[in-house]
Simulated assay, not measured.
Amino acid sequence: MQLKSLRIFREVARTGSFVAAAELLHTVQSNVTAHIKKLEEELDAKLIERHGAVRLTSAGQALIQYSESILSAHDEALSLFRKNASPRGRLRIGAMETTTALRLPPILAKFHKAHPEVDIELHTGPTADLIKGMMAGQHDCIFVAGKVNHPRLHQFRAFDEQLVLVSGRHMDKMPAPQELQTATFLAFRQGCSYRQRIELLLATHGVHATRIFDFGTLDAMLGCVAAGMGYAILPSMTVEAHRHRFEVHSYPLPEEIGQVTTYYAVPEMDTWTPAMTAFADVLRRATDAQVFT
């Protein structure tokens, strides 16, 4: 069915007249008749009673409901991409738990204030899961730790993080290899880049096996670290922001392990919605990220 045919059918139903519908749509009556006939042939159903006053048949009554929905969705989609129109629709953002907890809230608040008609969906997960979700079409944009080598993703530096070793007791220096050998580490599930830093830290101290427990939330991890359950590796800024809630201590990691950049990853620019373009602009202003500038 052509959209034009549905628009003509809708006007005939509204006006109750082929002539009136033709005048409203700036066409001739024969064109209106031809489109109605075409619809009836495609659906193999009589849509309009033509004897006496024009009225919809039962089939016509059923089609008019779908016509309204189809034409409304079509018009809404056009308005979504119309130049100079206010961004609307939804924006699906994927981010790491630590980024979501501290870095994104002020940026999301600015974006929502500037573009209140956009519905924001925020999903958290480890870097590996976020990339898989992006490739599966589940996210419009993602924030990941470290640059990812993928031909379909464009990535831009958003935040620089200094990672620290976190413990429930004070540390004047890095724990000895013997202590690390028997220590328990708490981390987000497999695919988390900070978990990989744990393995790298242990390897630099000659430790090749230790216990790493999976945690789903930042609060749970910090709470268990404060209780003395084990160590964690997290961004320094995140730890400082939660120190008033959890009695934890930290020690900076060596630069080659502790320096991590969070990247903003997006698909090709010609696939962006207006909401994605607006968010990239807010992000650029907030972080000086060179997002398609």
Rank of each mutant, 00 (worst) to 15 (best):
S17A: 08
A21I: 12
A22I: 00
L24Q: 15
Q29G: 08
T33Y: 11
E42D: 15
K46C: 13
K46F: 09
I48G: 06
R50F: 11
H51T: 11
S58M: 11
Q61M: 10
E68D: 11
S69R: 14
H74K: 11
A77R: 15
L78F: 00
L80W: 02
L80M: 15
N84G: 04
A85I: 01
A85L: 12
S86H: 10
R90C: 09
A101H: 09
L102N: 11
L104E: 07
L104A: 06
P106F: 13
F111V: 07
H112Q: 07
V118L: 03
V118W: 02
D119W: 13
T124F: 13
A128D: 04
D129N: 11
M135N: 09
Q155E: 13
F156K: 04
L163E: 08
L165K: 06
L165T: 09
G168H: 01
M174K: 07
P177A: 11
Q178Y: 09
L180W: 14
A183S: 13
L186N: 13
A187H: 08
S193K: 03
L201P: 14
H205S: 02
V207H: 06
A209T: 10
R211S: 00
D214R: 00
T217V: 12
A220C: 05
M221G: 02
G223I: 03
V225A: 05
Y231T: 12
S236Y: 05
M237V: 13
M237E: 14
A241K: 09
P254M: 12
G258T: 03
T261D: 04
A265I: 01
A265W: 01
V266M: 09
E268K: 11
D270F: 08
W272I: 02
A275V: 02
R285Y: 00
Q290T: 15
